[in-house]
């Protein structure tokens, strides 16, 4: 009972602190503190409620148990991270996005292809591509190559559509200006159209960064060597070792956040001139 009361107290404290902070002028510190307090409150409440209500750890382990498990199994977690994120997701992401980018530039020269491929690409981007996973696992074997292949297929079309749209995002005036400079196709592409397409390209890169991780993990459910995050999650669920599953989830969430954050930072550096980035220090 004391734990439940502690949870309620943490909740009240969190709300009180956040209401006070939200009244202050909005700055960098408050903008960071409020979500952090919110997150901490949830973790504390989770811990207290799990202990207070005697939730069995096979249903929901308390955060402290997850942290302890995380600390003792860093070896396994690192091995899985390398297998799934570095080998599967990142290599597939690089290949898929790179391929889509090059194809988009090629398509861009042919308006006919553009008009034909854009609707098809948009349609394919909305399909449950993840269903291709069992087929690709069958084709490329159980190791990371098949995971990378799934990631390539998943990221390809969103990236293609975004890049093609971005390359069209120049006005006639701008293109005429390049023309008066006697700039050829390549100069126009390099100095005008690619920079103008960057916000779209980064939009695609951001969307696909989370897709890449999902693709690599889910593909492991259809067959994998005895390491990898998806493999560990599905086998640990079977063994009811839920603390290890949650530790993997923490790794996945951290990897996903850093991946996304890295792309966002790069975007800020490359498209500093765009209205959505200006004025944000």
């Amino acid at each position: 009972m004391a734990w439940v009361l502690a949870a309620l107290a943490a909740w009240a404290l969190g709300i009180w602190a956040n209401t006070r902070l939200a009244r202050l002028p909005r700055g960098r510190a408050t903008g960071l503190a409020v979500p952090v307090i919110f997150g901490l409150t949830i973790v504390v409440m989770w811990e207290c409620l799990v202990r207070g209500l005697n939730v069995p750890s096979v249903i929901l382990p308390p955060p402290s148990a997850i942290a302890a498990r995380f600390a003792i199994s860093t070896q396994i977690l690192w091995e899985d991270f390398v297998q799934t994120v570095l080998k599967g997701a990142l290599s597939g992401y690089a290949m898929g996005c790179g391929g889509a980018f090059l194809l988009a530039i090629a398509i861009d020269r042919f308006p006919f292809l553009q008009r034909g491929l854009l609707p098809v690409g948009n349609f394919v981007a909305a399909l449950p591509i993840i269903g291709m996973a069992p087929i690709l696992v069958m084709w490329f074997g159980f190791d990371w190559q098949s995971k990378a292949a799934v990631v390539v297929v998943m990221v390809f079309f969103p990236m293609l559509v975004n890049t093609v749209q971005g390359l069209q995002d120049t006005t006639t005036m701008q293109r005429d200006l390049m023309h008066t400079y006697a700039a050829g196709y390549w100069a126009t592409l390099l100095y005008l159209r690619l920079p103008a397409a960057m916000p779209f390209i980064f939009n695609g890169l951001k969307i696909t960064s989370t897709l890449a991780l999902i693709g690599a993990i889910v593909a492991e459910f259809f067959g994998s060597p005895i390491r990898g995050m998806g493999f560990r999650i599905s086998t640990s669920v079977g063994q009811l070792a839920l603390d290890l599953v949650w530790a993997e989830i923490v790794v996945a969430a951290l990897a996903g956040s850093f991946f996304y954050g890295g792309v966002a930072l790069l975007e800020k550096a490359v498209t500093f001139w765009h209205p959505s980035q200006r004025g944000r220090a």
Binding site: N18, A22, V34, P35, F38, I214, I217, S234, A253, G256
Partner: peptide
């Protein structure tokens, strides 16, 4: 609600970096 805007919105975005599909079996 200003408090919700400042506290929930960042977590809504962060929630999507967790590959939920991966924890579906659990």
């Amino acid at each position: 609600n200003r408090v919700m805007d400042m506290s929930v919105m960042p977590w809504v975005i962060a929630s999507q970096t967790i590959p939920i599909l991966a924890i579906a079996p659990m």
